[in-house]
Write a protein that binds this DNA or RNA. Structure first.
Lengths: 126, 126
DNA sequence: TTTTAAAATGCAACACTATTGCGTTAATTT
DNA sequence: AAATTAACGCAATAGTGTTGCATTTTAAAA
């Protein structure tokens, strides 16, 4: 893998994601960063963080990608089989790391990634 | 609910979706329709079909929305709790209507919709 | 410390998906 | 056939994400 460097933008973005309870979109990150860097840089930093396995992507129900910290997914078997919850009212997307779905897939399918999202009302909004 | 009309565009789009084995995106539908109507009309017809419960949306892993026929989901409990498979090679998105995941969600959450997508290699591509 | 290679950035432009407003057309109802 | 209004076409716009390229900055080597 390519050598990556620690830059201000990367540090700030990582801190932001790690300190957030909910997954963040590019737009939300950009707003929080207060113009410390260009919007393209944010996209590139996010790509890097995903590649390094520090952050994972979630495709929200509206098609917008959100980013959240990786917790117990370091190391070899880097998988994200937990469910995400997208609140229709407060628009928050939360990782439910303890909730892992079971299912029986025909074995001809080779699964590389999973994206499970439920939408509705979160505890705060219902 | 508002009264809806059957138009050429709607009929064609519905036929297209119903005869397709895989879920279709707006772009794919537009290409197949060969300019029988404006692209905005396609968006509006799709919205109507979803509202009428004839078609359901799937958010693909790249954020693009795909549309597929509703089969056993007519009537009151219109739910789509089956898994979708998105092939990284041939880019097809397939409804696996028989594959329904199980999970234990904390009961404070109120679920309205589900979006489960696996990505990897489909039987044809693996 | 200075030099150096290339990783990272900023800026501008672009691609793609999706939505909105508005005047016009066409599908149903009467 | 006339009236109502759903549906349409067209143009413009918004939002998300990507690419190319010249410049800056990081971190390692000299």
């Amino acid at each position: 893998m390519k050598i990556t460097r620690n830059t201000i933008a990367k540090t700030e973005i990582r801190n932001l994601i790690n300190s957030s309870k909910v997954a963040l979109s590019h737009a939300e990150i950009q707003q929080a960063l207060n113009n410390i860097c260009d919007r393209v840089t944010i996209y590139r930093v996010l790509d890097r963080l995903v590649e390094e396995g520090l952050v994972h992507k979630i495709v929200n129900v509206d098609g917008v990608i959100k980013y959240a910290e990786c917790h117990e997914c370091a190391g070899e078997h880097h998988h994200h089989n937990h469910i995400h919850f997208s609140c229709q009212k407060c628009k928050s997307v939360t990782c439910l790391e303890d909730v892992e779905p079971f299912f029986n897939l025909p074995k001809q399918y080779k699964v590389m990634e999973m994206n499970f999202t439920l939408s509705g009302l979160c505890p705060q909004c219902s």
